[in-house]
Computed example of a mutant assay.
Amino acid sequence: MAFKYVNMADITRDPSGARRQNLTRDSAQDAPSSANGRADLITHVELFFFAYRDFTGDPDAVLAQYGFGRAHHRVLHFVHRNPGLRVANLLEILKITKQSLARVLKQLIGEGFITQRAGAEDRRERLLYATVKGTRLAEKLTALQVKRVEAALAAAGPEAEAATKRFLLAMISEEDRAQVEALVRVSPAGDKTSGENR
C-alpha cells in the first residue's frame, strides 16, 4: 500500500487542533535565512528518525523471532564486544535502571545467550560473557547493520566516513564523548581495523 510522506512540521498541532507555533515571539522576527536554517535542521532531525527506523528495523525482525527487543540487542552487543564486561559498566554504557537491565539480563542468561561469572579478585563482581549461541546472534545482527552502514557510506562518497564519525561523536554529550571513543575504539579516518580485535 502506497502512502504519502508529509512534512512533520505540517502535522505538529496542539490538542485543540490548531497549528502550534514552533518559535517564540522573538524568533518570529528572525530573518528568512534564520528560518531556512531552522527548516534545514528540522529536515536533519527527520532524516535521523527515518535512518534510525531502518537501521534498527533490520535487526528488529530477527530479534522478534526470539521474543527480544532493542534492549536485548544493546545488552548482547556490548557484552559480545567487551567480554568480561562488569554489570556496573554496562549500566553506565546503556544509562538504564538496574531493574530494566536485570529483566533483560535474566532473559538473555536464562535462554543461554549470555553467561555471568564472578570476578577473580572480587567474587561479588558479576562479569558478563556472550555464549556461543549469543555470539552467533550478536554477529548476525551486527552484520545486518554493518551492511546498511557500508552501503550508505559508499553512496555518500569518499569523504563520508570521516565526516560521519565526527558528526556522530559530536551528537554525543560532551561529558560522555571520551568514554564512548574509548569504548568503541574510534580510529583515524581510513583505518578499517578499529574495533576488530577487542
Rank of each mutant, 00 (worst) to 15 (best):
M1H: 11
M1W: 10
F3H: 13
A9I: 14
D10W: 04
I11M: 10
T12D: 13
D14N: 09
P15Y: 04
G17S: 02
R19K: 15
R19H: 12
N22D: 07
N22W: 09
T24Y: 00
R25H: 02
S27H: 12
S27Q: 15
S27W: 15
S34E: 13
G37M: 09
A39D: 12
D40K: 12
I42R: 14
T43D: 15
T43S: 14
H44C: 15
F48D: 12
F49T: 06
A51L: 15
R53S: 10
D54Q: 10
D54P: 00
F55L: 14
F55P: 00
G57S: 05
P59N: 06
V62Q: 10
V62D: 14
A64I: 03
F68D: 02
H73C: 05
V75H: 02
L76R: 03
F78G: 03
V79R: 02
H80A: 10
R81S: 08
N82G: 01
N82P: 00
L85T: 02
R86N: 08
R86H: 12
V87L: 14
A88F: 01
N89I: 01
L90F: 01
L94Y: 02
T97I: 01
K98P: 05
S100T: 13
L101I: 02
R103S: 08
L105C: 02
K106H: 08
L108F: 00
L108S: 03
G110H: 06
E111D: 12
G112L: 04
I114M: 02
T115G: 06
T115F: 04
R117C: 08
R117Y: 08
R123Q: 11
E125C: 05
E125Q: 14
E125S: 07
E125G: 06
L127M: 12
L128V: 06
L128Y: 03
L128P: 05
T131S: 10
V132A: 14
R136I: 08
A138N: 10
E139I: 01
T142E: 15
L144V: 02
L144T: 03
V146E: 13
V146L: 14
R148K: 15
E150H: 11
A151S: 13
A152K: 03
A154S: 13
A155G: 06
A155W: 02
G157I: 03
P158Q: 08
P158N: 09
A160R: 00
A160Y: 04
E161S: 12
K165G: 10
R166A: 13
L168M: 13
L169M: 15
A170F: 06
M171E: 13
I172W: 05
S173I: 11
S173K: 15
E174D: 13
E174G: 11
R177Y: 07
A178R: 15
Q179P: 00
V180Y: 14
E181W: 07
L183Q: 09
V184D: 03
R185D: 14
S187N: 12
S187L: 09
P188F: 03
A189L: 06
G195M: 10
N197E: 09
R198I: 07
